[in-house]
């Protein structure tokens, strides 16, 4: 797959001395959905803002569709749409005029039919003559998306799109994101909702303290780092694990009713059948079994903790 955004050794140190980005290298593929995960202050917004031209990089370079974001800023910005994290909108503008304004800023000819359809897709059309200040938070978020899409960008950045958003809007948003992806738009989003990154993203990048810790296909990442847990519920509580089970690295919960066995699904032999045999040999009776798969969240927490 060819890359549409190529980031090379990108660093940003703010005037205050805060190092927000530390030599980031990243290629974003054409047509993919990339989720950037990281705690607050990790540098996600700084990275997005730099690519979009809001923040000047301290060193390093970014090219978008083969053009440098500083030298050829007109070409690069024209194909980028940005939905910011904050609900930054004028108060007295009307929905219709603000999306037209955005389209004009990006040097696109007026196209009422396109904007009309866009507003309809975002369930905003009946609000088109409302002043922005009268809209609810969710509606404002929709307007920001409409503005970002008003010039038909090839790359869309969504900075924390689901922060403070209700279920319905979130569903709508992912529907739109999937539709955009199928029309060939590259989407980069930052989020705290790890399950969402897991369900929607093709690849996941993890950022912490200005460094890109890893970028991996979501599935590979899950497999590579994905640990599984077998939880064995005992019929009668055990107050201590029998010595014969010591080699399995088991954990017994406080009241002695559950044994947890952690293994890696990718390893050739998981050792489950041997373990179960050993358990019954030790005289314990199994009541029930349960398997937990670690989520992206566990992986993420582990990664950030480790470094």
């Amino acid at each position: 797959m060819s890359s549409i955004v190529s980031i090379k050794n990108l660093s940003k140190t703010y005037d205050s001395g805060f190092e927000a980005l530390n030599s980031i290298n990243l290629d974003i593929n054409k047509g993919e959905i990339l989720a950037l995960l990281g705690p607050n202050g990790a540098g996600k917004t700084t990275l997005i803002s730099t690519i979009c031209g809001i923040i000047s990089p301290t060193s390093g370079s970014v090219s978008v569709d083969g053009n440098d974001i500083i030298k050829d800023f007109r070409k690069t910005r024209k194909i980028i749409g940005l939905v910011p994290q904050e609900l930054t909108l004028g108060a007295f503008d009307k929905v219709w005029s603000t999306v037209n304004f955005s389209r004009g800023l990006f040097n696109r000819k007026k196209d009422d039919a396109y904007l009309k359809k866009l507003l309809k897709d975002l369930s905003l059309f009946d609000k088109k003559d409302s002043e922005l200040r009268t809209l609810s938070g969710g509606m404002k978020r929709r307007v920001l998306i409409a503005k970002a899409l008003s010039h038909q960008p090839k790359i869309l950045f969504l900075d924390e799109p689901t922060a403070g958003v209700d279920v319905e809007l979130r569903k709508d948003m992912w529907k739109i994101v999937r539709k955009l992806k199928s029309s060939g738009v590259t989407i980069i989003l930052t989020t705290h909702y790890i399950e969402e990154a897991q369900s929607i993203a093709d690849r996941v990048g993890v950022i912490n303290e200005g460094e890109l810790l890893l970028v991996e296909k979501t599935k590979t990442l899950m497999e590579r780092l994905g640990k599984k847990q077998l939880i064995v519920e005992l019929k009668e509580k055990a107050y201590q694990l029998p010595e014969t089970l010591n080699k399995y690295k088991l954990e017994l919960n406080e009241d002695g009713s559950l044994i947890t066995y952690t293994y890696n699904a990718k390893d050739g032999g998981t050792g489950i059948s041997k373990l179960l045999g050993a358990i019954s040999e030790a005289g314990l009776v199994v009541k029930d079994l349960q398997i937990n798969e670690s989520s992206l969240e566990d992986i993420f927490v582990n990664l950030v903790k480790k470094l």
């Binding site: 979009c52 809001i54 800023f73 007109r74 910005r77 940005l82 909108l89 800023l105 990006f106 040097n107």
Partner: peptide, 16 residues
Amino acid sequence: FPKFTGTIYEILSAPI
């Protein structure tokens, strides 16, 4: 005003 409300992000990220 755009600086104050933050809407200036659009001007800064536009091809102008």
